[in-house]
Design a protein around this nucleic acid. Structure first.
Length: 230
DNA sequence: CGGTTTTGACCGGCGC
DNA sequence: GCGCCGGTCAAAACCG
């Protein structure tokens, strides 16, 4: 019984967080537009990178007072370098996936020039393993939204091999598109569509309902030892 | 003690 | 060829 109360509370908190994220997503779509126009050179480079390897980007809004370069996404990362780049005074951190020694995935994390409260995480490659089950459901909550190069406008839930519990959330949350091999990063029309899309979603009571279902399902799919005892 | 982070050095690609 | 710049290495420090 107590567990049920806990789960209800968890569901309520999760829903609250999801709706917050929708707001964040809307805010950040604007930030992306501002950021993408900041450097032509980096755009060119980014375009080449996107064309050559499977890359994706996650934008995370953090506390402006928090200067750490940590983007929680369910994977374990080992930092192997940090560098201050020319076009951004904020240092860029380099991470490798440390869950599997053979996993080729790399991650670069840097603060947005325009809005230092936004962390831009660029993922390179694909994980060749499953993500470890998070110690708590909220461990994934910091992973706000993502841009998959393989499926820029769809609601593909697995752009980064996210685990099953997140799949439902992936279906509910749109991905922020930032760039593909065919299209430039500073596609204002895309940003506009994202904003429009998110705005409509946040106003849509059906979306909220869908979120409830998605969150509920994601909790159900988590291993629940309570069933052993009940 | 093992894993992670920090940080200066090094390397390779690219533009001039 | 040279210099700049981004990315990586590796040793030392740090931490649980």
């Amino acid at each position: 019984m107590e567990r049920l109360h806990k789960e209800n509370e968890m569901l309520r908190v999760s829903l609250q967080m999801m709706s917050n994220k929708c707001r964040i997503l809307q805010e950040t779509a604007v930030a992306v537009a501002a950021d993408s126009g900041s450097s032509e050179d980096s755009n060119k480079r980014a375009k080449n990178e996107f064309a050559q390897t499977k890359m994706s980007r996650i934008l995370t809004r953090t506390d402006p007072r928090d200067f750490s370069l940590v983007v929680t996404d369910g994977y374990q990362w080992r930092k192997y370098g940090q560098k201050v780049t020319k076009d951004n005074p904020s240092p860029r951190a380099y991470f490798k996936c440390s869950m599997f020694p053979s996993c080729p995935v790399k991650k670069k994390v840097q603060r947005c020039v325009e809005d230092k409260s936004i962390l831009v995480a660029t993922y390179e490659g694909e994980h060749n393993h499953e993500v470890q089950a998070p110690s708590g459901f909220t461990d994934f909550q910091d992973c706000t939204f993502m841009a998959s190069t393989t499926n820029s406008h769809s609601f593909s839930p697995n752009g980064l091999n996210l685990p099953k519990p997140n799949t439902a959330l992936g279906l509910a949350l749109p991905h922020v598109y930032e760039g593909t091999s065919r299209r430039p990063c500073h596609d204002s029309m895309d940003t506009y569509r994202i904003e429009e899309h998110v705005a409509s979603l946040t106003r849509d009571p059906n979306f909220t309902a869908a979120l409830s279902v998605a969150v509920a399902r994601s909790i159900v799919t988590l291993p629940d030892h309570s069933t052993d005892q009940m």
